[in-house]
Write a protein that binds this DNA or RNA. Structure first.
Lengths: 207, 207, 207, 207
DNA sequence: AATGAATGAGCCTTCATTCAT
DNA sequence: GATGAATGAAGGCTCATTCAT
């Protein structure tokens, strides 16, 4: 075993293998789902032998966890790059919703994977209590919410609840869109979402 | 084979067995996930022998499908009872969000199941193109949206998109709540959701 | 249990059921082979419930044994009727070969069954040492051989060996014909067989 | 999967494993019959794990097919070696009958297997239309018949029919001998068979 | 006696994981 | 370190047989 716990440094060549495995894992998990994905297919896709997978990851579960964490890490970096262009918390929040949709709809298969496979059974979470791949991503969103509330640009509701609401809304929309094989116009729905977040549903008489 | 295609009527006793199987299926699928659920456990839980399961359902897939459809049918009936108490489309819509949360949070495990297992791999949907358990439920929600739009009480956006947004928001919230083992107050979040749906996020100067 | 050991007499009605089971057993065993034949199909074909089969036969093995014995008994009676028309042992022997082919080719499926399924594994014969369905049939053939030898019409070779040779030849031919889905003309081959039995293969100079 | 389709060459070690599996397959199939034979027993007998069987053969059916083909291939080679010692078609034909009996009676279990299991249900042949293990063997016999007919040493009857008759006769005799646990002297019967093939049954007056 | 729903033992096959090379 | 052949545990499903009605 080289480095299951990532204690030792990997050589450049090894790091490339590890990365190839992470990427083919996302690819195959996304296409087949966790249980239908075969280690042999992931390994083959990454250009290594089956057994090599176990030099870099403890087992299939571990590969899933590491692949998802890696993916979210990369997506978070993308997101941070975009958000940093906005000045106010309010703009950041609206930009977040927009970019989240853009980022994740680049590959519908990955969206389905994240929306579905990610949520393993309770047994899975019990087995791996540290597996919280959304953690950093949600934390970033929550901070944006706090900023927007602080500047008074959005109404002052609990920032954690708000981050769930924002994430949940956009995420369900894109997951449904992905699961349903893109049967409706995402752009249109995206506009509706933004609209509702802005103004709410209710028509007010005074307007 | 008794009645795989449900052509013949089942005796009272048999109907009870079928129902027991459907319920233990939901229970075990919810706890373990589809792939980790064992037919033997479901059968045992229902108090019948393994083989008996196959007198009532064609196979494991069929059991999943029938269990989910049965569950949604019952939940929809509950929902319809509640909604019928409201007069306007607007009130019906807000009541829907509230009741959806109430109904499904009675059993967190079921929520996780519906939010996650339901979205099997695309292969599963290809194999069973008629499996659309949300269909009636979403249709009901969409009709409420249309009613509310027609009466002019909410802003006129596409009713299908709107139904996704409403369902998605509340469903993510309860799923996350269920997956995270109820780590936050659902009641509180429920209020926030309703609030945002009503008034939107943005603080407007003129208010 | 009514009468597994056939100790008690069966009523007319019961005897009819037993016979129906024997006949549908031959039919289904012939079509599907022993292992692919389903008790439920045999029972249904005979117009009785699955469980009823076990009132008349100890188990599936027993049903096979009884069905084959019954079939051979009936075929032997047919054969005896035909043979009794011939006067000499020699004519009886040649008639036997001819009638055997005729009798058994009435239903190719039954032939295949007798040529194949009849010969269970050694384990089967160990389990049922009394299962010798050919016994009476072969004994009858052997007696004809003895008669023909006694009258000096055929060359004096061991009658038991001879009966095997005659039976084996015609039986392989019809089995092969049945297995190959009647791909060659049985009548033609029948003539060849008779011809060889009469004159042998070898062309003799003095002829 | 190593090599189901036998595209790649197997190492010496692997070829030995494959051969061991083929041989234990013949052994166990012969003793138990196809349906009663257990993959686990075959694998154990060959000294490998159950799963290993599936590295070399697609499934149980495939193992049967490959084992029988392999067996016949080897038996045909043996036969060809013997037959090549004879000069005339007539001698070859008589030698064939003799050697067939000798070759196959080396192991009575194998005889039963070939005489019985080989003739699976029609369903099996429909599933594997290319499975004709007797093909080469019968073709070889037919060619000998043709040679003998051509040289005028045996009477001119249809060579295909003749090959069936010769094969059928000797094969039934040895199968019966095998099934009956060698209850009669095969050597004696062998002589009778040869005698009948030579001279026929009928005593002719002019002789 | 007849029924047929219920039983549960039993096996082929897959595939994550190991380990000799 | 890398390989990939070998392992063997595990489970969905069938169907002969039983037994309550």
């Amino acid at each position: 075993m080289i480095n299951n716990a990532r204690i030792k440094k990997l050589s450049i060549k090894q790091e490339k293998k590890r990365q190839a495995l992470l990427e083919s894992a996302i690819k195959v998990f996304s296409e087949k789902g966790f249980h239908e994905a075969r280690i042999s297919e992931i390994a083959h896709e990454a250009g290594v032998a089956d057994g090599t997978t176990y030099l870099y990851f403890k087992n299939k579960d571990d590969l899933l966890i590491k692949a998802v964490e890696d993916l979210f890490e990369r997506k978070l970096q993308e997101m941070e790059r975009h958000i940093s262009q906005e000045k106010t918390g309010r703009d950041k929040l609206l930009r977040f919703a927009e970019e989240h949709i853009t980022i994740f709809t680049e590959d519908p298969k990955v969206v389905r994977f994240l929306g579905v496979e990610l949520r393993q059974s309770k047994e899975f979470y019990k087995k791996y209590p540290d597996f919280k791949p959304l953690r950093h991503y949600m934390k970033f969103l929550q901070e944006i919410c706090e900023e927007a509330i602080a500047e008074g640009s959005i109404r002052a509701i609990d920032s954690k609840a708000l981050s769930y609401i924002v994430y949940g809304t956009v995420n369900f929309v894109i997951t449904e869109w992905a699961v349903q094989e893109q049967s409706f116009s995402l752009t249109e729905v995206k506009n509706y979402v933004e609209d509702i977040l802005r103004y709410g549903l209710i028509v007010r008489k005074e307007e």
